[in-house]
Nucleic acid binder design. Structure first.
Lengths: 224, 224
DNA sequence: GATAGAACTAACCAGTTCGTACATTACGCG
DNA sequence: CGCGTAATGTACGAACTGGTTAGTTCTATC
């Protein structure tokens, strides 16, 4: 409501202008956030552009103005989600630990991150239903050397050098082993619960499953 | 559905009647098969009833005649898919093997079955996107004691008795460990490929991944 | 071979959904 | 302070989609 006052001579903090009536960046961020929720909840086809618009503090027109259409919006949502996990992966700091502890800690951090971000898992599942056709067209997604993979590679090297790891494992394969476990627990929670009557994400089981993952990875690496 | 005619005296081969113009059971089976493909390919919301009807040798009206609607058709497709995997699970015969070999073989059979049935994995993924709301309402899906789980339980018991298995593992947990690996490879193939440039289902890698699963499970169970 | 009901067909309908044409307002800048 | 442009709001429509209405044909049975 209050008009911006940056005009008067001594421009204070440029970034402190708060209540802009018009703020492109903010509007786009708002749309992205709402769209992420809607897509994660209903799937790509199930998501409704009108629904997204309604939950935004702007209108449908803006979605088309800024993103072009439903498909481009979906791609933007996906890219933002992947950027988020990339960022989280770079925060991982386990290099100071010995190999066995490091790989266990890495697995646990992955576990916790997936546990905390079910929406991301859902977006990925949805994109897989669509054969990742959007992600494939998105430049900058493919990382032939991701930071995590590099990190895993270093841990595996150290473990093999120290003699603790008996197997010569491909870093990407180990990443898949860890991811599959973490992703399944979240992604297939509902059908698993319906079929076997057990909630994989119940609080009581969380620590047990986290430990089981660490045990599994360590057991695999440290046996011949 | 098709009435039984075993009543009349000398009816020859009842099952050989070939070119029926009208065959309720056949029509339903046809619809189910086409619907399975369409749902697996496009997802529940993305699937089009008209599209299913078109690929069937009957019309849309018949879908509503026999199944009631899109949602009930989806449920029928799901139930049939689960019935299929249940049947396959009962074919598993590994009790004659020693515990270590048995659990490895079980893991490999699960691996192969998922490898051979990507559509089933997709249907499950899709149902999870919808929070398994359909499966939850479907009676006869919940199996508090599934045959596979019982089988795993017996193998684990034998392994612990013989001293080969060092851990006291819950059968359902082990099933999850195996499933997560097998499912991820198929379900997340596309995004994984887009991000890391590796096709998890490539023929060259299949044997390696099958062996890795067996190694992982055995390593986990046989270490303290 | 008449008949009743199951199996089937074609055309249609009402609600939805993505997208857009057009009008309008706020903002930065000189 | 006025102007050009970026940003935004309103209203609408064409195409689609799940579902239905009304009517037809086949087939088992007596």
């Amino acid at each position: 409501m209050s008009r911006s006052q940056e005009l008067d001579g001594s421009r204070p903090l440029r970034r402190s202008a708060p209540a802009r009536q018009r703020d492109a960046a903010q509007t786009q961020a708002d749309i992205l956030q709402v769209a992420t929720k809607e897509f994660a909840e209903r799937g790509y086809t199930g998501a409704r552009v009108d629904q997204i618009a309604e939950r935004t503090r702007t209108t449908k027109r803006m979605i088309y103005y800024y993103f072009g259409g439903k498909e481009q919006l979906w791609i933007a949502v996906l890219e933002r989600a992947y950027a988020g996990i990339r960022h989280a992966e770079q925060e991982i700091d386990v290099e100071h630990l010995d190999p066995v502890a490091a790989i266990r800690r890495l697995a646990e951090l992955t576990f916790d991150h997936h546990e905390a971000n079910p929406d991301f898992i859902r977006l990925v599942s949805i994109e897989n239903i669509h054969h990742a056709e959007h992600l494939k067209r998105s430049p900058g997604i493919g990382t032939l050397n991701s930071p995590v993979i590099e990190l895993i590679a270093r841990i595996l090297d150290r473990g093999r050098e120290s003699g603790e790891f008996k197997r010569d494992v491909d870093p990407l394969d180990l990443h898949m082993l860890i991811s599959s476990y973490c992703v399944f627990r979240v992604a297939n929670r509902h059908t698993f619960g319906a079929v076997f009557g057990r909630d994989l994400r119940s609080r009581q089981l969380r620590d047990r499953y986290r430990a089981m993952l660490g045990d599994t990875v360590v057991a695999y690496l440290t046996t011949a």
